[in-house]
Design a protein around this nucleic acid. Structure first.
Lengths: 181, 181
DNA sequence: TCTGAATGAGACATAAGTGTCTCAATTGAG
DNA sequence: CTCAATTGAGACACTTATGTCTCATTCAGA
């Protein structure tokens, strides 16, 4: 009962704040189909809700990546599968990055940890020959995130299916979209 | 005198709203070194300020791209130079996309026009052999935007100079960052 | 220098968001 | 079924943001 309510609130908060960062807590409660008082029972205020949102998004992204990576036979493949798995969650990653992460030390630490993990995975993939060794890993990580978001955008606008977008993103990351010349 | 004030307000608004979308108009006025009343003299309210912000960002991006493109000897080169020129403005593009564009019909139309121009340029570059013909142009456009933002991020965090970031972004877009395998 | 436009600071009224509380209704576990 | 927990709805006080106004001051151009 409680879990269901909290989940509804978090889901609503994601969808509301995505396209209206100044939205009211009342808007969130309405979208969640929940009383305004109930929202306050679970989240003391806007900041706490935002932190919970960020925590949730990071957890979901981490889980999606880990789940996909277990099926991989190499670090390079893990990154490829992880990219695909994270596409539906990419917008959440993007939006929380902008706001609430910096405020909470715990979130900042977790964010830093995940980034370090990503860099480490990229370095491993480099040693497998999956990525060019002379391209800085931080850039590869940034590109990964950026193309992940681009893929989400393509799926959202209906210009590509999930699979198409995942293939395009991975292709672009690895061999680019350049022509003959 | 007026122009200087308006410019100060818009600049302040960009920097304030970037990392605090819920910031107050008073915050913007303070950051701009301007009285709160003065802000209201030029912008009737939050929505109008946001629209002006979006308009400004689109104009600046357009100008930066056009200015860079005139030096180009090909469409492909124009895209490469445009990418580099737009890096310092990438965050503005990103943040306005999320919010105010959808609200004003005029902004939506302008945004659509710019996207169509981008697609057209990509198609021209394809015919030059600059991009693979069989990769959908909308995806190339999305990748372009995504990598543009990634480049901005690298410069912001100090992990790359403007030139390094521009080279990395273009390299990634055209030939990727994959390794031997 | 003179003059009108623009501004800053502050007061003010209004609107909007937030947080708390109560109470009746609903829910779900035992 | 019974009961404790959870919830929705509404009322309420409080805080914050917004928009307007005034007036003295500053500024830029004639």
């Amino acid at each position: 009962m409680i879990e269901k309510t909290i989940e509804a609130i978090l889901d609503a908060a994601f969808s509301v704040f995505e396209d209206a960062p100044t939205a009211t807590l009342a808007d969130v409660a309405l979208e969640a189909g929940v009383g305004r008082a109930t929202l306050h029972r679970h989240f003391s205020g806007r900041d706490e809700l935002m932190s919970a949102l960020a925590m949730q998004a990071m957890r979901e992204l981490d889980e999606a990546f880990e789940a996909a990576a277990t099926d991989a036979e190499s670090y390079t493949d893990a990154l490829r599968l992880g990219l695909s798995a994270m596409i539906p969650l990419a917008n959440r990653a993007r939006f929380l990055e902008a706001g609430p992460v910096a405020d909470t030390p715990q979130l900042a630490a977790e964010s830093k940890r995940q980034r370090a993990e990503m860099i480490a995975a990229i370095d491993q993939a480099k040693s497998e020959g999956g990525f060019a060794a002379y391209v800085p890993s931080p850039w590869i990580a940034e590109s990964f995130d950026a193309l992940l978001y681009a893929a989400w955008e393509m799926v959202k606008t209906g210009e590509a299916t999930h699979k198409q977008a995942a293939d395009l993103a991975w292709r672009t990351l690895t061999i680019g979209v350049g022509g003959a010349k």
